[in-house]
């Protein structure tokens, strides 16, 4: 899933304080799972904003809505009838949802309420960590199912740097060395000899480096 973090309330207030009618819009997908932008967080943010405006002696309307998804036309359409009741929307969806809403409601300011950080997994409640950077050419078959692009701080393709120490990365004791994980897994799979195959220079044109990406599937296109 896409993992996001709630923005500091001060930053949201700074962007939103000029408006009199605000809609806080959550998303029921990834940001709900990572507890950054679901219905619950919409409620918390809306309450905080109401409190702030009340303390300022201002009458500001702050309403709440949570859409099934903000990255689909279908669900974004659900607010078409109400959007003009507001001067701005604070979207608690990931960066995709914020942008898709802004494209659809071109005349309306759409403000981000979260920082989108990575594609990752829930290690345990309250702990999420990165697993994928969407490089566009998956090599997990070669690396024991552990991605050096997203999990090695230097995204090295041919083994650990000289800074790998007791299973940890040189930049932090908290961070596992991706290549230690890869070596451990290759060993478990009885495939450690594959480590010596030199991984060729990567074609980064399918990555962000190649410009904004698009997937078109003619077979499913309508």
């Amino acid at each position: 899933m896409i993992v996001a973090e709630r923005k500091p309330i001060e930053e949201i207030i700074e962007e939103a304080k000029g408006f009199d009618r605000i809609l806080v819009a959550g998303c029921n997908e990834c940001v709900t799972v990572c507890e950054a932008g679901g219905k619950k967080e919409v409620g918390v943010l809306a309450s905080a904003l109401r409190m702030y405006f009340m303390n300022q002696g201002r009458e500001v309307k702050v309403d709440e809505v949570t859409l099934e998804r903000q990255c689909d036309h279908e669900y974004l359409e659900e607010i078409r009838n109400i959007i003009d009741n507001y001067d701005a929307v604070i979207s608690l969806a990931c960066g995709v949802g914020v942008q898709f809403m802004a494209e659809k409601y071109f005349h309306k300011p759409i403000l981000p309420g979260v920082n989108t950080v990575f594609m990752g997994a829930t290690e345990e409640r309250g702990v999420w960590s990165e697993r994928c950077q969407g490089c566009g050419k998956c090599i997990l078959a070669k690396t024991g199912g552990i991605c050096p692009v997203s999990r090695c701080a230097k995204r090295l393709f041919n083994g650990p740097c000289g800074g790998s120490s007791q299973g940890k990365c040189e930049i932090s004791d908290e961070l596992p060395c991706a290549w230690q994980l890869i070596v451990d897994r290759l060993k478990e799979l009885g495939r450690l000899d594959e480590y010596e195959e030199i991984m060729p220079i990567k074609d980064w044109s399918t990555d962000r480096a190649g410009g904004p990406r698009k997937v078109v599937r003619e077979d499913v296109r309508q």
Binding site: G159, P160, G162, G163, S165, Q180, E196, I198
Partner: peptide, 18 residues
């Protein structure tokens, strides 16, 4: 001296092969 120690010589071999 870095870890994992068991691939330190294989890593040398890889650099030579490169």
């Amino acid at each position: 001296f870095a870890d994992p120690f068991e691939i330190r010589v294989p890593r040398l071999a890889k650099k030579i092969a490169a």
